[in-house]
């Protein structure tokens, strides 16, 4: 059965969205690998100052590349998709700040004995962001 022009064009737009999403995923993956390299690498090369600095510079550069790619991803979206992203990002940021401060406070007032880890906060923000996207997409479907 022949597809209508609109269906074909919509499929092209859908493909563009997929390409844009794929770029963000590749950059996130590259940044995660660079972060792992910058974290665990120094042990391998004996904490050499120059190579460690280069590793962190690379991790930082890839991080900015990831931010830039995500910005492009947002700009390519339509206004409703951007609103869903805004609501999810606001939720993740708000939860991150509020819970992060309380988490830090728990250690300050000796209610927990371990040092709060930034990685816990990042995981919480990532999960909150995904939950926010789920809620937004469900609300506006």
């Amino acid at each position: 059965m022949n597809k209508t022009n609109a269906e074909t064009k919509t499929n092209k737009a859908y493909s563009r969205d997929r390409v844009s999403e794929a770029k963000v995923i590749y950059w996130c993956l590259a940044w995660t690998l660079a972060t792992a390299g910058a974290t665990f690498g120094p042990e391998l090369w004996g904490y050499g100052t120059l190579i460690t600095s280069i590793g962190i510079a690379i991790q930082l550069a890839i991080g900015f590349g990831m931010i830039w790619t995500f910005k492009g991803f947002l700009l390519a979206m339509d206004e409703l998709q951007r609103l869903i992203q805004l609501e999810a990002i606001s939720l993740a940021f708000g939860v991150g700040v509020v819970v992060g401060l309380s988490y830090e406070l728990l250690e300050d007032v000796k209610l927990i004995t371990f040092e709060p880890e930034i990685s816990h906060l990042i995981m919480l923000m990532a999960l909150t962001y995904m939950f926010g996207l789920f809620l937004g997409n469900r609300h506006y479907r």
Binding site: T4, N5, A6, E7, K9, T10, A13, D78, E79, L80, Q81, N137, Y140, R141
Partner: peptide
């Protein structure tokens, strides 16, 4: 006799946006 997908394409937005 347009589908939501057709209108979405004409307005350059997603079908989800038209539905919302």
């Amino acid at each position: 006799d347009w589908t939501q997908a057709k209108l979405a394409e004409e307005l350059d937005v997603s079908r989800q946006t038209i539905n919302a």
